[in-house]
Computed example of a mutant assay.
Amino acid sequence: METRELKEHELNLVKHLVRISKKEGSYDIPDSVEELKDGKMGSIRFFSGEPKRKYAADLVQVEYKDEDNVPVIITLTLDNHQELYELEFWKVDFEQLNRYPKPDEVGVINS
């Protein structure tokens, strides 16, 4: 697994998503992430020292339109240790993300 530092624009979005989620709890945002192989849509997995991590629940789900006007759904998920797990992007046409969203550009679907 190749990790890298969390980028500032990713950190800003994650902070915003944690803030607008309606689930109680304080979530540490790891400094290191792994890029997921999702066709360059932008999904990342947060690095943790916890062994045997797996998806447990969605924290919040938002959407926005990429600059080509194609809808993108973004889901911030938790693992089985109640830590941030993934920031998942799904562009509905399965194409590459053109522009990373700013926090004020996303609207809540589910929280």
Rank of each mutant, 00 (worst) to 15 (best):
Q61V: 14
L87N: 01
L6Q: 03
Y64R: 03
D58T: 13
P51L: 10
D31F: 02
T75I: 12
G49I: 09
L6P: 05
G39C: 08
K54F: 14
E67T: 14
L78W: 11
E83H: 11
E63I: 00
L13N: 00
E8N: 09
K37H: 08
T77M: 07
T77Q: 14
S21T: 00
L17D: 05
R45Y: 03
E5N: 15
N80T: 14
D28V: 12
E5Q: 11
E67K: 15
K37I: 07
E10V: 01
D28K: 14
L13A: 00
I44W: 04
G25T: 01
V62D: 03
H16S: 08
Y55M: 09
D31K: 15
E34A: 08
R19S: 13
H16Q: 01
Y55A: 12
L87A: 00
G42S: 10
G49F: 11
T77W: 11
E10K: 09
D28Y: 13
L17C: 05
S48V: 03
N80V: 14
E10W: 02
L84A: 01
I20D: 08
K23P: 01
Y64F: 15
P30R: 08
D31N: 14
K37R: 01
N12T: 04
V70N: 03
E10A: 06
E8Q: 12
V62I: 12
M41E: 15
Y85Q: 02
L76E: 08
L17A: 02
E50D: 13
L78N: 11
V18F: 07
V70A: 04
D38F: 10
Y27H: 07
F47K: 12
M41Q: 15
K37A: 13
R45A: 12
E63T: 10
R53H: 09
V70E: 10
Y27M: 04
D28F: 12
Y64W: 05
K54E: 15
G49E: 15
N69H: 13
S43V: 03
Y64L: 01
S48N: 05
N69R: 14
P71S: 11
K23D: 09
D28I: 12
A57W: 11
L11N: 02
L11T: 00
T75L: 11
Y55W: 15
E88R: 14
I20W: 02
L59Q: 09
L36T: 04
I74W: 02
V70F: 00
P30H: 06
V72Y: 06
Q82I: 10
G42D: 06
S43N: 06
Y27D: 06
I73D: 08
D38M: 08
S26C: 07
S21V: 06
K52A: 08
L59Y: 02
